[in-house]
Design a protein around this nucleic acid. Sequence first.
DNA 1: ACATGTTTAAATCTCC
DNA 2: GGAGATTTAAACATGT
Length: 310
Amino acid sequence: MPRPGKNSYSDQKPPYSYISLTAMAIQSSQEKMLPLSDIYKFIMDRFPYYRENTQRWQNSLRHNLSFNDCFIKIPRRPDQPGKGSFWALHPDCGDMFENGSFLRRRKRFKLMRSDHLASKNSQMLHYFHHQHHQAKLGIGTPETTGGVGRLPQFQTYSINGGQSSGFKHPFAIENIIGRDYKGMMASGLPIASVMHHLGYPVPSQISNMVNSMWPHVGMLDSMAPMPISSDYGPFGVPMKTLCHTTGQTMPAVPLPIKPTPSLGQVSAIPTLTGNAAHLCPSSASSLLEKTLPDMIEGKGNSLHPALMLS
DNA sequence: ACATGTTTAAATCTCC
DNA sequence: GGAGATTTAAACATGT
């Protein structure tokens, strides 16, 4: 494990699965769908690690696109010339990363055998026609539809019947960066500053590490192209569409990783409501102090440091 | 030829 | 340790 400040982490493998990376790429696009080449580009632009061995990871990525039901292929319209199809996220896969952890999904999004063809195709066609219809009518502003080209059902995930465990991964981006700190993020404050503001210990080592590691992803203030708001993650990815959320504001407290409550169970921390500013900084600090050093040393959960602060 | 897409298989990783 | 998720490799098909 290279030391912060010594070797750069920028060429380290990001702690995201190909599914996560692909979902990020798709979600970062305005149309919520991208051709393969643009997915490659998104990943290579943001993660230098993937600028090498392209043959290898791109093959893996293509495998993921085909293999996983959470990705749907959308044919190009005649007015959209180019190679290959567009790839989008299946409308019902919204809570794949139900804990907000992009390391590993709790469950694979899998269509029922009988549903497979019908669902995948009908969703694709629905999407296709929805897009086409909106394009023709010139409707579908972000204000009225929740995003240009957003899937019609995208904001009401149904895989749990609309229920969510409410529990979010302790290192979920939303947990770490409280939703109410939208203004702070929008104002261009570095993550470390936000963490500090929240009362978290932000050793200069850590903040330096993040900034030197992946300056292109760690420093939101340098990320011009993408909208920064509480609804967007560090890559300009609308978090709501990647991580199931009930709309309940979850605390930005790094909690010890606990087993995910099974579907239908109540939140693991049901009494914690309100925004992050109401939290006791000391308790948050003690947790963080306990977990950060271990993780930096690579003990316990082998989280990439960038994830902790991103 | 090359990019894209599908499928199979095996290795590896992570969680319980 | 087992189950399931993820990664990797590879073969093959198709389209431009």
